[in-house]
Design a protein around this nucleic acid. Structure first.
Lengths: 212, 212
DNA sequence: AATATTTACGATCGGTCGGTCGGTTTATTC
DNA sequence: GAATAAACCGACCGACCGATCGTAAATATT
């Protein structure tokens, strides 16, 4: 046990490992993740990892959970401070598609990468990813419902459908930005979301102009 | 050399290997693709593969090309027989999102899987994938331009943007169908595309009703 | 200071990977 | 039927993988 208020050594190690694991898995995937490389990166021994996690799959699961935490901290929570209504919805989408290409996480989108990696392989990791996806989708859905309630979106808006479409634009932007050009991909993703939100908005002028 | 009209032995082997490679890579990725497993599946020797391709990367490239051929043969070409105008555009999208979940290619979408796998890794394979993507995107763009010319879509339609959005819906459907539920994912993808096409169509009734 | 416990390490295991090599089989040509 | 060349195979290599184990160092408790 440890003294209250003081962080245990093991906890610090675990945190460092998982942060690094998220970064590496974003590039190489959760399967391509090499425990030896991961340990070398951090200057620790590979065998030490097995003291914290029983198997590679356990570490993969923990990595997914850590990535989810990062996402909630750095994307979801800041978006809650945005104005309100459809503007908040827009801010959330905009922050999301920009999130994975800037200084925050320059390696790309962890979830886009990993979701496709495990989409065809049943197991605990895939189940965990599905949970993450549902959680995010529900969050967007709730924000959209709120926007409807606040009068920014039309009353007959299918908020679940809207959440799906915003997800689609973000997902494609992440892929295209690497495969082709980030500028083009972002312009498409932003415009698509803005146009969609405008068609559902009670007042189209609530959304910013096309600043491409 | 071989007698005319008769297929060389090596050609048949190459074709069989690549077809199998596309299937396996769709599940495990192009990196996760094991040459030993691939050879065992086909009842050939692993070393024999190196007689046809110099390295694994060479085989990966050939696999991408084969997948593109399959896509052109089974998705693009049949769609050209569809009526015309916006209906043809719709038929193409519909066929595409259904393509990867039916008996045609039950393993999922090869390109969705592989594009994310190589989106962060520069190299010849990624360049080849970008080519494939551009080719597909241009094709949809051209069909959309044609639909404009035929009077089905509004004259001010941004066909390139439309191609991007249709791509987004298909991409997300492929991922969601595995991660969550195929039925739901397809309903979303179909509805999103239909709604989008309706907003751009000169006559919304050209598109079928929501048959969900 | 002595003890107990967590944490980390080096060495090593069995297994799989991509790739090589020498030799054998198969099909075609003369 | 001999000669030729493409196609193919089994055995093997070094490198790397995830995982195990006994032990040493660091920390906490007494």
């Amino acid at each position: 046990m440890t003294i209250d208020g003081r962080i245990a050594r093991g906890d610090r190690t675990r945190a460092a490992v998982l942060d690094r694991a998220v970064a590496r898995a974003t590039e190489d995937g959760l399967d391509g993740l090499s425990l030896g490389q991961l340990a070398t990166d951090l200057g620790v021994s590979k065998s030490g990892l097995f003291a914290h996690w029983r198997s590679k799959e356990d570490l993969q699961l923990a990595t997914v959970e850590r990535a989810q935490e990062q996402f909630l901290e750095q994307v979801v929570r800041p978006a809650l401070t945005a104005p309100r209504g459809v503007r908040r919805l827009w801010a959330l989408h905009d922050r999301r598609i920009a999130f994975y290409e800037t200084d925050l996480l320059p390696g790309g989108c962890f979830f886009a990468k990993v979701q496709f990696e495990f989409s065809v392989r049943p197991g605990v990791v895939r189940d965990r990813l599905a949970t993450t996806f549902t959680l995010w989708s529900d969050f967007v859905d709730n924000l959209a419902r709120l926007a409807v309630h606040e009068g920014d979106l039309r009353a007959d808006t299918d908020t679940r459908q809207l959440a799906y479409e915003l997800e689609s634009f973000a997902l494609t932007a992440v892929m295209q930005s690497r495969l082709l050009s980030p500028e083009i991909a972002y312009r498409y993703a932003r415009r698509a979301a803005r146009d969609r939100l405008r068609t559902l908005a009670t007042d189209p002028d609530l959304l910013p102009e096309d600043s491409a």
